[in-house]
């Protein structure tokens, strides 16, 4: 009798799937996880909740003691802010441009890297280096590359007798410059993700298609691409979300200018809250940003995601 009781107490984990576990077990897992959960709660969830609350106040960093609730005034101001349409346009330009360019070229690069020839592992490692470079270094380096007089890009364009535009000072070219520098890290990033998917595509399936007389393009279009779809969807969503929070590559490369020609919502929130001290209004913009992210990711999921998970 006592021996069965003892066995029960000692080996609860053996019964996989049963909800009954020893008190100590439960205790250990809770102790292991709750410190992390508490930290996340304190440094992310609570500030996030406060931020939403601030959107309904006229809080600013200067007269921080005398703030009051202003209801929906900040959101009303958002609707009538003459800069907001341009900011939203810039945000869409950045997010869609970054996602499309990096994913298309990233897929090409991934296909190129999907080979078994010798030395390809080393080449893959080299392509990873831009991903690991600090974004601030990327931004500063591209600022030098795009420099009008001493920059390498215009120097190169000059040697092949192409026009040498004022990249960062031209409202029409500031955002393209941002996107070009974004591709430098984004294309390898997407390629690395998509390569993982490509390596998972069954070679048997591809060989079967080849023996049925399919050419390389047909194999890619009808076998590889459908199999890649879930990974492709994930890569698009990740890039999409990361583009919304892109900061250094704009604040340091173009400083959001000229004027506000390359300022997306992310940077506008920073400028409003920390530069112009209008914390309440910045918080309202933050709410708008989160709604934009949630809605567009939701739309992506509805359009492309549901089918790719099946």
């Amino acid at each position: 009798m006592t021996s069965t009781a003892l066995a029960d107490r000692r080996a609860p984990a053996v019964r996989r799937g049963t909800p009954v576990r020893g008190f100590l077990d439960k205790h250990f897992l809770l102790a292991a996880s709750w410190p992390s959960l508490l930290i996340m709660l304190a440094v992310t969830a609570v500030p996030f909740a406060i931020s939403i609350g601030l959107a309904f106040t006229d809080y600013d960093l200067v007269k921080s003691k005398n703030w009051k609730f202003v209801g929906l005034a900040n959101f009303d101001r958002l609707l009538h802010d003459p800069e907001i349409p341009r900011i939203i346009f810039n945000t869409a330009y950045l997010v869609i441009g970054s996602t499309v360019l990096t994913t298309v070229f990233g897929l090409v690069l991934a296909v190129l890297l999907d080979s078994r020839i010798r030395g390809v592992g080393f080449i893959r490692a080299l392509y990873m280096l831009p991903i690991m470079t600090a974004p601030i270094v990327v931004a500063l380096t591209w600022r030098a590359m795009f420099n009008n007089d001493a920059g390498w890009i215009n120097y190169f364009l000059g040697t092949v007798h192409l026009p040498q535009p004022l990249w960062l000072g031209n409202p029409a070219l500031a955002m393209p410059a941002v996107l070009i520098s974004d591709m430098w890290t984004g294309v390898p990033f997407q390629a690395v993700l998509l390569l993982a998917g490509l390596l998972g595509v069954s070679t048997q399936l591809k060989e079967a298609a080849v023996s049925d007389g399919a050419n390389m393009w047909q194999v890619f279009w009808h076998v590889t691409l459908p199999a890649l779809r879930p990974v492709l969807f994930i890569a698009v969503v990740l890039r999409f979300i990361d583009a919304f929070r892109k900061f250094e590559g704009i604040q340091v490369l173009t400083t959001g200018g000229p004027g506000i020609a390359s300022t997306p919502l992310n940077l506008q929130i920073y400028n409003t809250g920390l530069f112009y001290n209008q914390v309440g209004y910045a918080a309202a913009m933050g709410v708008l940003l989160i709604v934009l992210i949630a809605v567009s990711v939701g739309l992506l999921y509805l359009v492309a995601g549901r089918r790719s998970w099946r």
């Binding site: 996030f48 931020s51 992310n266």
Partner: peptide, 17 residues
């Protein structure tokens, strides 16, 4: 959540905190 929400959204409350 942490992957979706840009830090700019909660950095000011964190600063005040």
């Amino acid at each position: 959540f942490s992957r979706m929400v840009p830090p700019v959204v909660f950095i000011i409350p964190l600063f005040l905190f």
